[in-house]
Structures are given as structure tokens and as C-alpha cells.
Simulated scan of single mutants.
Amino acid sequence: MAQSYNPFDVLELRLNSIENLLLDFKHQYISAPPKQADQWFDLNELCNYLPDKPATATVYGWVHTAQIPCHKGGKKLRFLKSEIDIWLLQGRKKTLQQTALEADAYLLKSKGGAGRTYGK
């Protein structure tokens, strides 16, 4: 005889599967280390954090020319550490080889550019 199809058995299997997934998610969430909250700097803290320890007037100049990421609440400037770290990394000088590769790529893209080799 053919076995009868019971839709409630299928529902029970699916519910058990969902329950197991939720329990796995719960255990992963509990065992995961909490994310560390980002740190805010005021102007003086930022000056002390930056490697070259600039004067506050210098930082005001950077803010005025939009060279540094900042947040303004009323009259108070605030700086997010993660944004400052990214900003510092973007300011890294390129090596001679990196500059030469970029120049070659530019020359190849431009009209009639025959790639040159610098610094080799």
C-alpha cells in the first residue's frame, strides 16, 4: 500500500529546522564578542592623538578647508576616531614605483600614449 502524505509532518520538520537555525543564531550572537564603540575626540584630544601633534589653529584650518573629517554640534567640533584613522591612511605618500605605474597607466589611456618606464 502507498504511504499516506501528512502535511503536518512536513510542517513539524520545517518548524524544527527553523527552531534549530534560531538556536544556532542565538548561540553565535551570545558568544560573539561585542563590538567596541567608536571613540569621539574633541579638538584637544585629536591634537594629542595625531602623530605630528598639530596646533589647534592648524586643525581649525583643516576643518575650514574640509581637509579633515569632522562633526559639528553647535559650536563644538567632534572627530570620530575611525574616520580620523581612515583619513590618516589616505594621506600616505606613494612610492616612486606606484607613481610610475600610475603614470604608465595614464599614458596608455591617453591618445597616442606609448607607455614609458620610470624608476626601473
Rank of each mutant, 00 (worst) to 15 (best):
S110T: 13
C47S: 14
K75H: 01
Q36E: 10
Q98K: 04
E102A: 12
L22N: 15
L80S: 01
K53E: 06
W40L: 13
A57Y: 10
A114W: 13
A66P: 00
N48P: 01
E45R: 14
E102K: 08
G115Y: 07
L77H: 07
K81E: 08
R14Q: 11
Q28H: 06
D104Y: 12
G61M: 09
E19I: 06
K76P: 01
I86M: 02
K26M: 04
K75R: 08
V59F: 08
Q98G: 02
D38Q: 03
I84G: 03
F25R: 15
K94M: 10
V59T: 11
S110M: 15
A103L: 13
Q97M: 04
N16F: 02
G115A: 14
L23K: 13
Q90K: 11
Y106H: 13
L22S: 14
A100R: 04
D85I: 07
P54M: 10
V59W: 08
L11T: 08
N44Y: 08
L43F: 06
K109H: 13
Q36Y: 02
Y106D: 11
G91R: 13
T99K: 07
K72D: 00
I18R: 11
C47D: 11
E45K: 15
C47L: 11
Q98A: 10
A114Y: 13
L80R: 02
L101F: 05
A37P: 00
D42E: 03
G112E: 13
L43N: 04
P69T: 09
N20D: 06
N48A: 15
G73S: 08
G112W: 12
R116Y: 08
L96E: 00
E12K: 12
I18W: 11
K35D: 07
Y60V: 02
N16Q: 13
Y60S: 09
G91D: 00
I18C: 09
V63R: 03
T58R: 15
L13F: 01
R78P: 00
K93E: 05
Q28T: 05
K76H: 06
R78F: 10
K76S: 05
K76C: 03
W87T: 01
L50R: 12
E19T: 11
G112L: 11
L13R: 13
P34M: 00
Y106P: 00
L15K: 11
P51D: 04
V10T: 07
L88H: 03
E102S: 11
K26D: 10
L13S: 04
L96R: 02
D38E: 06
D104A: 15
L77R: 02
K53N: 14
Q36I: 11
V10W: 06
V59A: 12
Q28S: 08
H64P: 01
P34D: 07
D85Y: 07
G115C: 12
E102Q: 12
P54F: 14
K76V: 08
S31W: 00
P54C: 14
S17M: 08
L46G: 09
F79Y: 07
C70S: 14
C70Y: 13
K75Y: 04
K26N: 05
P54H: 12
K93P: 03
V10P: 01
E83H: 02
N20K: 12
L77A: 01
